[in-house]
């Protein structure tokens, strides 16, 4: 008796494509953001237009964080924190993406477009 039939493999392929389609349907539609909000602590200190290239210095709790906007994206260039986790976060372009320099209290969040969640969030 043959253990797996063509029908089995067809079902497996069908199931795999269904799972793939679910990723496309539920995770794929994050849209490009149009703006970035910059927070120090809980207060928003700046709103950046991502369509215009620019550079910014944000005064946080322990010093100056440098941000750059370019090609519809925003990123930390430098920050006075030990780990530079914010800098390593790299470019942010999609709605809802966030980079934060916690020691300096500076948070950048991409806004605009349609917001999509990637996990239970309420």
């Amino acid at each position: 008796m043959k253990r797996f039939s063509i029908g089995d493999l067809a079902v497996l392929a069908l199931g795999a494509s269904l799972v793939g389609a679910s990723y496309a349907a539920f995770w794929g539609d994050r849209t490009e953001g149009t703006q970035a909000a910059v927070f120090v602590g809980r207060e928003q200190v700046a709103a950046l237009d991502l369509s215009v290239p620019s550079a910014h210095e944000i005064l946080g709790r322990i010093g100056l964080s440098q941000l750059r906007v370019e090609g519809g994206r925003v990123r930390f260039i430098d920050s006075p924190c030990p780990g530079r986790i914010c800098v390593h976060s790299g470019w942010l372009a999609r709605t809802g993406e966030v980079a934060a320099c916690l020691p300096n209290g500076v948070v950048v969040e991409v806004l605009g477009g349609e917001r999509v969640f990637d996990a239970v969030n309420r």
């Binding site: 797996f4 029908g7 089995d8 493999l9 079902v11 497996l12």
Partner: peptide, 18 residues
């Protein structure tokens, strides 16, 4: 219900799980 029983244990289990 499929005619000719083309699907065996693997396919049945995957379908049931999904």
């Amino acid at each position: 219900l499929l005619p000719g029983r083309p699907v065996g244990a693997l396919g049945a289990s995957v379908l049931a799980a999904l």
